[in-house]
Amino acid sequence: MNEPRLYDSRPAAIGTLIRSGAVYVILAVLSAGFLLPLAWMLSVSLQDVRGVFAQPFAWIPAQPRWENYSDVATLIPLGRYFLNTVIVTGLVLVGTLLSCSLVAYGFSRIRFRGRTVLFALCLATMMLPGQVTMIPLYILFSRLGWVDTLWPLIVPSFFGSPFYIFLLRQFFLTIPREYDEAARLDGAGRFRIYWSIILPLARPALITVALFTFIGTWNDFFTPLIYINSPEHATLTLGLNMLKSQIVGTGMTQWHLLMAAACMVMVPNILLFTLGQKYLVKGIAMGGLR
């Protein structure tokens, strides 16, 4: 990177070295600080009751209690929560990917009257706080008999989501129109072009949207909190809060079990994050740099 020069190379090199060293030290300290709570959570989740309250705290328990993780299942129906979350997340993924890509195709590929206005309207709804529509929606879903079922968490995803429509539209605009034209000459209709030309080419953008959707749905708390009352329909996030109320609210001391539950809820996020970080970063950057 630095071209060797005869005279001033040495001071410059030392300066660069010190600067790089400082950057590494600061970043290492900060990263450790960011990760410390997670490491601590893992440590607490492997303690016994005495270990949780021991002073000084032993970061590495003498006998890690992995059975804490299975003990959680004796306090709450963990399998049920997991299954519910998987059902909701799976269907929301299907709904979001289908509806958002269809709408994005319409907004990016077809010229129709009112397109600009409607697209602006679509973006504007991103600013609307969910609380404004929350009560009428609750009434709508309760009239349909959907309160305390998984439907209110799933159905809206089949009707598009502005941010993902925006992301996909931006990506579709970068796909050359020549592909569409060629397919049209071969006699392909609009839906065929969307399905067999655009969607395969848009794979990276679809993966980004899928990751965001997965994390958003897996983490959602507000919607299940409002609509789900009984434990057999609870999602993991809601169930974790129920467990927290049980343990903290009633003065029980099983923090190790609560932390084990929290760790389990976090695992899918960490896994997906490690696998798909590239796509997440791209999506966030795209959203921020419109």
Binding site: L30, S31, F34, L35, P37, L38, I215, W218, N219, F221, L236, T237, L238, L240, N241, K244, A262, C263, V265, M266, N269, I270, F273, Q277, L280, V281
Partner: peptide
Amino acid sequence: LFLPSIMNIVA
């Protein structure tokens, strides 16, 4: 540094 920002809010 990015990891904590995608964590489940209740966890």
